[in-house]
Structure formats: structure tokens, C-alpha cells
Amino acid sequence: MADDRRTHRSHVSYIDKSRGYYGAQGYPQAYQWAYHQDVPFAELRKPLSDCRVGLVTTSFFERKVDESAVASAGVKEPYAALCDDALGGLYNKDLFWDKDNTHTDDLDTYLPINRLRELAAQGRIGALADRFYGVPTDYSHRRTSRRDAPQILEFAREDELDAVLLVPL
């Protein structure tokens, strides 16, 4: 592609876009996004080829929704499930992604179970864990940090993970 010049950054600022979008819907108070100055960092403790790797998604299994409830009123909890049970695809139509420009019919575009199993077979990683993990996309930082994150850590410990790939949609 030819070189170009720009007056704005190229990649989308979802923080900026969502502020304008919800403002136009009559929500005067902008969403308060998580911001941290300090960032924790853990190193791998063994060669990647010996590591058991886990996957975390924001997608869920399709649920029966009470039709009288508004779409956003459903309560989601973090979960762990067998990777084999996700191979037919997960449900994410209720999540916020670009439904006009793409689709999520191919699981490995947002939860690369097959690709990681191939990489495990090639010896790049030790193994993909038998289970994967789901975490709700929550408006509340508190619920994510105090309820969901500790639960995902507990799943990771149960499955003796050495490293985790987190793939938000």
C-alpha cells in the first residue's frame, strides 16, 4: 500500500466513538473507562513448548432469554466449559461488534481453539487446556475485578495453566 499522510490517528478510538454515539442517544455522562498507570507483569516460568495454555472469551453459549426481559437485563456469570463443546460456535450477537462489516461464524476468528491445537501438535506449546473460560462484558469494573477475575483465576489454577490468551470480541 502506498504511503500516506494523516491528520488523525488511523486506528479507531472506541473511547471517543462511544462517547459521541451514546451522547447522541441522550446519555450525557460519558462512560468511565478503566485506566491504570501501573501494569503488572508476570514472566513465563518454563519453555512455551512445555506450557499448558488457556483461552478466555467474552462469548457465551446461547441461552434461552426471557422474552419479556430487556436484552441488557440478562445476568451473566463467568464460566468454564470444554473446548470440544465450543467447536460448533458460541453466541455473541448480544455483544458490541461490527455486525455490518464482518461475522463470527468462524470460531477461530475470536476463539482460536483449532489453531492452538494445531500449534500444540507442532510442539509450539505444550497443550491447550481441555477447558476454555468465559467472562461477561460488564459495565461495572467492580464486578469484573472482584467477581469475574478471581473466578477466572480459580479456573486457571484448577486446570494448572501456565499462560493465558484473553480474546475480547
Binding site: V39, P40, D162, V164
Partner: peptide, 16 residues
């Protein structure tokens, strides 16, 4: 999701 990654890192588990 990033908050979950941070929690795992704080517990010593490397993430991406």
C-alpha cells in the same frame, strides 16, 4: 477483559 488479564498477572500468571 483487560481487568481480568491484570488480575491474572498480579497472581503471577502470564497473559496476552
Amino acid at each position: 477483559m483487560s481487568l481480568v488479564a491484570r488480575h491474572l498477572e498480579e497472581a503471577g500468571l502470564p497473559t496476552v
